[in-house]
Amino acid sequence: MIMREITYRQALNEAHAEELERDPNVFLMGEEVAEYNGAYKVSQGLLDRFGAERIIDTPISENGFAGLGVGAAMVGLRPIIEFMTFSFSLVAFDQVVNNAPNMLTMSGGQFNIPITFRGPNGPAHQLGATHSHATECLYANIPGLKVCTPATPRDAKGLLKTAVRDNNPVLVLESELLYSSKGMVEPLDVDLTIPLGEAEVKREGSDVTIICYAQTVPLALAAAEKLEDEDISSEIVDLRSIKPLDEEAIYNSIRKTHRVVIVEQDRPFCGVGAEVCYRIQKNIFDQLDAPIARVSQEDVPMPYNEKLEKAVLPNVDKLIGAVKKVCYA
């Protein structure tokens, strides 16, 4: 099998095309997905290939078209709803939080909602406070939703294909800053799916476990390179899914390293790291040789100014500092 190097954007595009080809119930709907070929070109060429009945442009009405997707899913269609960014999903919060995940319970098990909400999530570059939300902690809080956060082209393709086939509402939280990143992916004739709720060790190490996801994965890998020069060996655990959470993968790594840093792209208060941290101390407290460290955003609305934005976000230096602290180095 010869692997190919493709972009994260291309990987997502292939995932759409393959699922649209495989299942006539799948359709893509969102702002600028059809004639414009996608605000970030993820849906490039799909309109030409699958037609206007399945690749559907919408007005700027997130609440409306997200709800339309949920309704269509009630009768067995499998919508992929693109949010131009998950910051805009907040306008559709009621549909994503109240309708999609509650329907199964409210109907006594009669209606499951096989829908995928996807689009870029988290801070990009100087977009200011309204366009920089990392929503994973908001959505992971809701029972009935599944949340995944692919960091590589391979994970993006495999997780999106799995999400579309899942019978529950799944959020695929992509990242604008990763769309042009490249990585190795199986050839086109391989039906690549990656299970939800399965983390991946992106780099093996022995001194410290760095838990990361989405944009913080490349950041953690870069930090690991630098730490290697100082004889600190880091194991990088990419969560890939926030919910369900692969706790075993986390614990297996900690049993080896006994030290943990969590680097997350969201905010510290009630963030993903807070939950992961709680579970580690609850379940394998005895394995820890140092308090758990977290690197998150600063707890402020995102400033526009470039220097201040950098100060808010996690970065390699902050992460290295946290690693050294837990290693008492």
Partner: peptide
């Protein structure tokens, strides 16, 4: 549906299907 107005988009989804 108990959030006022929130099911009207759902209805569009049924009709869309």
């Amino acid at each position: 549906h108990a959030i006022v107005g929130a099911h009207v988009p759902l209805a569009c989804g049924l009709a869309f299907a």
